[in-house]
Computed example of a mutant assay.
Amino acid sequence: MSTTTTTSTSNTKWWVVGGIGVTVMVVLAVWFGMSATVGKVHWYNTGFEVVSDEQVDVRFDLRRDPTRAVECDLHALDDKHARVGTGSVVVAPGEESPSRHVEPLRTVARATTGYVDTCSYVD
Results as ranks from 00 to 15, higher is better:
P104W: 07
P66W: 00
V26T: 13
E95W: 06
R100S: 15
V50M: 00
D57A: 10
V30C: 11
T9V: 07
T6H: 12
A109F: 00
W15K: 15
T4A: 07
V91G: 08
G18W: 07
S35F: 11
T46Y: 03
G19F: 01
H81G: 11
R106S: 07
W43Q: 05
A36D: 15
F32T: 07
V58H: 04
P98H: 02
G18V: 02
K13N: 14
V91Q: 01
S97Q: 04
V91Y: 03
H101M: 09
R100N: 14
V90Y: 05
V58N: 09
T7V: 08
F48H: 01
D61L: 06
S120F: 01
W31F: 12
S97D: 03
V30L: 11
I20R: 13
M34Y: 12
W31G: 14
F32S: 10
E96S: 00
P98Y: 07
D65Y: 01
A111D: 02
V30E: 09
N45R: 09
P93A: 03
T107W: 03
V58Q: 08
D65K: 03
R100P: 13
D78S: 02
R64P: 13
D61W: 01
S97C: 03
S88V: 02
W31A: 15
R68W: 01
A36Q: 15
Y121A: 00
Y44M: 14
A82S: 14
R59Y: 14
F60T: 11
L62Q: 04
T113C: 05
V84A: 02
T4F: 02
G47C: 00
